[in-house]
């Protein structure tokens, strides 16, 4: 993990740690997954916090002609040009409508930074590892290809994204 990601993850982790403990006084979970969760339509998705560099507001995404499908455009990240991926369409949903709660999740993959355009970002969530199950077969959508699993936790259903698959956009 790059130092940048760690720098961001630490405060997020710290914050997550400060959240009230899970309800219903269960036995202490053995291992926890730290996830950054966000919503697309009303479904909740999560990616490991370790892959997240930062989360930024949407301040203009410039369209670039002739880009591969699912690339929404580029945006200015502190003087650097960041490509923004339309994760919704990648997962088979309609293109995003940017609202004040929209965010760009900046992830780092193979040393490169990419932005994911999402509708809303939730908190960093810790879920026990054993709450994660493989994607259920009854949920038949194009999305299941991109999932590493599904976490059921606290009456939430968080779909864990396989970023490598999601972002394998072009050669």
């Amino acid at each position: 993990m790059s130092t940048d990601a760690r720098a961001v993850a630490e405060p997020l982790l710290g914050f997550a740690d400060s959240l009230p403990a899970a309800a219903a006084g269960t036995a202490a979970p053995a291992a926890m997954l730290h996830l950054l969760t966000f919503t697309l339509d009303r479904e909740e998705f999560g990616i490991p916090v370790t892959q997240v560099r930062e989360v930024i507001r949407v301040d203009g995404i410039t369209r670039v002609p002739q880009v591969p499908a699912h690339v929404r455009g580029v945006t200015n990240l502190r003087g650097r040009i960041l490509a923004v991926v339309e994760i919704r369409t990648r997962l088979g949903l309609t293109p995003a409508v940017v609202t004040p709660s929209s965010r760009i999740v900046v992830v780092e993959l193979m040393g490169r930074a990419l932005g994911l355009l999402v509708d809303r970002v939730s908190q960093v969530t810790k879920v026990p590892v054993d709450s994660v199950a493989p994607p259920p077969e009854e949920v038949v959508t194009a999305e299941t290809d991109f999932l590493t699993g599904v976490a059921r936790w606290n009456s939430r259903l968080i779909m864990l994204l396989d970023l490598d698959k999601v972002l394998l956009l072009n050669a």
């Binding site: 670039v64 880009v67 580029v74 490509a83 990419l114």
Partner: peptide, 14 residues
């Protein structure tokens, strides 16, 4: 141009 943008032909940079 970021590699993620593929190889647009009408645009040479940003």
């Amino acid at each position: 141009l970021d590699p993620a943008l593929g190889r647009p032909t009408v645009v040479s940079g940003t």
